[in-house]
């Protein structure tokens, strides 16, 4: 018994095992977390400040700000804006934004998907590398470049295509018009935006397609499938969701585009569903157009317009991001 007691005495005190990080680590974690949360802070600040500047107009117009389509700034004799007589309704530009962006997506997505399929499954290795580099480079082109190129080079061609479309498809409502003048229409803007988003949609589709499980691809080949049969049976069912997400990312970018639309589109404040008529606009380019000579009140309205645009693109991007991540980037 005594020996046991002695042994008990000899047992060292229990070591204190701690997972408490040192001060340097706590500081490091704090700083890094702060840096990480900055994106939340910035997005929140954008929301707060735009809402603050646009508050007066938003409260005055209420829901009418996005459902009505009159933008009349009435000034009294002293040069102040007469709020009661003025109207701020964004609907026309919202429709223009959606029209141009949707047209761009309709044009760009088939081209991008075909291009991505070719690069992933058909192209020889050297061509693939070269083309991927070139398409990535194109994604870094600034929008003013697309705008000027669209204005000087693409527009004459697209006007001719618009004429062809009008000639053969004028029984479709959105292609109807009374006076066949095709200059600076949403149709042109849609083409320029389409060319801008092709690199993005292509690279996302390519990434999704290249993540197709290899065992399924090889199983299809082993069963004697041609490349097309393999694509139809394996790649398209697998990548469909990701392509939809990529298309929505392209949509988001096309909706927020300013300079390229400003250069090629004849910005007229009216609701216009007819894509061939040379009048339209989008929210971003309208802000740029009206900003120069805007009175303080109208500036507030433009801030509110910016807020609507911000929330719209945020929504589209978030949905796109959810879809892409659910399909593709599991192994990220």
């Amino acid at each position: 018994m005594t020996s046991t007691a002695a042994r008990t005495d000899l047992t060292p005190d229990k070591r204190e095992i701690t997972t408490k990080p040192r001060l340097s680590d706590r500081v490091f974690r704090g700083v890094a977390t702060g840096g990480g949360l900055s994106s939340l802070v910035i997005l929140g600040l954008i929301l707060i400040f735009l809402a603050y500047q646009g508050y007066q107009i938003l409260r005055l117009e209420g829901l009418g700000f996005i459902t009505e389509s009159n933008w009349d700034v009435v000034q009294d004799n002293a040069g102040n804006t007469d709020l009661a007589a003025s109207n701020f309704g964004l609907a026309a530009m919202l429709i223009g934004t959606l029209l141009c962006a949707a047209l761009a997506v309709v044009i760009a997505v088939p081209i991008s998907v075909l291009c991505a399929l070719y690069l992933t499954f058909y192209a020889p290795e050297f061509l693939k590398r070269l083309m991927v580099a070139i398409i990535d480079l194109m994604a870094a082109f600034p929008s003013i470049l697309f705008g000027m190129w669209g204005f000087f080079i693409l527009m004459p061609h697209v006007e001719y295509w618009a004429m062809l479309v009008f000639k053969y498809f004028n029984w479709i409502p959105i292609f109807q018009m009374d006076v066949p003048v095709f200059t600076r229409s949403p149709f042109v803007a849609g083409f320029v935006l389409a060319i801008m988003i092709i690199p993005i949609v292509t690279s996302i589709s390519r990434e999704i397609f290249s993540q197709t499980p290899l065992d399924r691809v090889q199983a299809a080949y082993a069963l004697g499938a041609t490349r097309w049969a393999m694509i139809k049976a394996v790649v398209i069912p697998y990548g469909r969701g990701g392509v939809v997400g990529g298309a929505m990312l392209g949509l988001g970018r096309a909706m927020g585009e300013t300079v390229a639309v400003y250069t090629v589109l004849n910005i007229v404040y009216q609701i216009n569903w007819q894509v061939l008529i040379g009048a339209g606009g989008n929210v971003a380019s309208m802000i740029l157009l009206k900003f120069g000579e805007a009175s303080p009140t109208e500036t507030g309205a433009l801030m509110a317009a910016g807020l609507v645009l911000f929330m719209l693109t945020l929504l589209v991007n978030s949905i796109a991001d959810l879809i892409v991540n659910r399909t593709g980037g599991k192994g990220r």
């Binding site: 994106s39 939340l40 910035i42 997005l43 600040l45 954008i46 400040f49 735009l50 603050y52 500047q53 929008s143 990312l249 988001g252 970018r253 909706m255 927020g256 585009e257 300013t258 971003a284 802000i287 740029l288 433009l302 801030m303 910016g306 645009l309 911000f310 693109t313 945020l314 589209v316 991007n317 978030s318 991001d321």
Partner: peptide, 20 residues
């Protein structure tokens, strides 16, 4: 998610934010 959302902020909105 937010960083991804931020990369989609239209450039003109960044300008408006600095203004406001």
């Amino acid at each position: 998610f937010l960083v991804q959302a931020m990369s989609g902020v239209p450039s003109i909105v960044a300008g408006l934010f600095i203004l406001s």
